[in-house]
Design a protein around this nucleic acid. Structure first.
Lengths: 185, 185
DNA sequence: TTGATCAGTGTACAAATGTACACTCTCAGT
DNA sequence: ACTGAGAGTGTACATTTGTACACTGATCAA
């Protein structure tokens, strides 16, 4: 038998690298992500990068995966907690207006994912799965049609919220969500 | 007096460079834009780039400006043509479901702008102005509140349309837009 | 303890990038 | 036709990038 088979010297290192990469994406954007920048942020030697990952794309995609996992977890939990239609609507309002579901940095990260997916098939798949998750979470409370419309509303209004720098009026958002649920959708 | 003062040897060259940069952004994404890549695409010597622009950021921002101009022109025109509320709603449906207002490539370009604005103040301003233009075009037909909601719906649904690769159901979109306009918004 | 084996690293390198700038070319004024 | 000022360019250069890979060192079977 072989000695020292598969025993890592520093377990969890790969994870820490991915975490560092995600922080870098959220702070500075994908464009600034490089083997060296991530290595420095994770306080890890450069060689570690090529040892644990086959390419920089893999690092970035894995970082995005963490982001999507994190956000979809909160998203799902927040909507699952809602017991009544009114509470579900309120959860949607909070997703759009609050920052308990996603901080501005995290929302910016999602846009970066959309852009990055244009040149990375793996990230494109990830972006698609993120959209699927949010749609699924909504269909728990709304008809499929209403869920589609609300999903789009969330997507767009969240972007505006983020780019404006200030949260939209809760009353207005609530009215819009209600309008989308109370008609024949 | 000075001889040859301000007489360009090849007028319109700057414009052609910007056009080439925009095409490059739409085809391959900002990440692939470089002095050399743009120069090659515009069939212009490398030195021309630094002669006409102070930095690559300027080239990219100008390219985005053309994109925003182009889209906001169509946007405004399309909504301005509408004479009745029903026609205005139909124009919104077309913006979301059709590709007469923005091709998939152009929509992808807008996302790239949102991302790029994170590190370029000029592009951030451009992104903000794009949002302002669309909002203004909508207030021509809808109440300010309804305009906000519809603007968000357009933004989000257009993204979904683009990332899904297939247009959403027109009937559904029409119902959603109607819902947002017929209530107390 | 030893040595085989694989985890992990430091360094080197080719390719690509943004930019500066010494140069060449062109044309308006004479 | 000539000329000089300013339009426009080719080349060179310092940096930064992704990646390869010869090396070092930690661990387990013996």
């Amino acid at each position: 038998m072989s000695a020292r088979s598969g025993v890592p010297n520093d377990p969890g290192r790969r994870e820490r690298i991915i975490a560092a990469a995600l922080e870098l994406i959220l702070d500075d954007g994908v464009a600034r992500v490089s083997h060296r920048a991530v290595a420095a942020r994770a306080d890890v030697p450069l060689g570690s990068m090529t040892y644990h990952f086959t390419s920089i794309d893999e690092v970035i995609t894995e970082a995005f995966r963490r982001l999507v996992d994190r956000l979809s977890g909160r998203y799902r939990a927040g909507l699952h907690e809602a017991a009544t239609p009114a509470e579900a609507r309120e959860a949607v309002v909070e997703i759009i207006c609050g920052d308990t579901f996603a901080s501005p940095r995290e929302m910016a990260g999602i846009f970066e994912l959309y852009s990055y997916g244009r040149s990375s098939p793996d990230s494109a798949e990830l972006a698609a799965s993120w959209m699927g998750i949010s749609a699924a979470a909504l269909t728990e409370h709304f008809t499929p049609d209403a869920a589609h419309a609300i999903d789009a509303l969330i997507e767009g209004w969240t972007i505006h919220h983020h780019l404006d720098g200030k949260a939209p009026d809760r009353e207005l958002v609530r009215a819009a969500v209600t309008a989308l649920t109370s008609s024949a959708l």
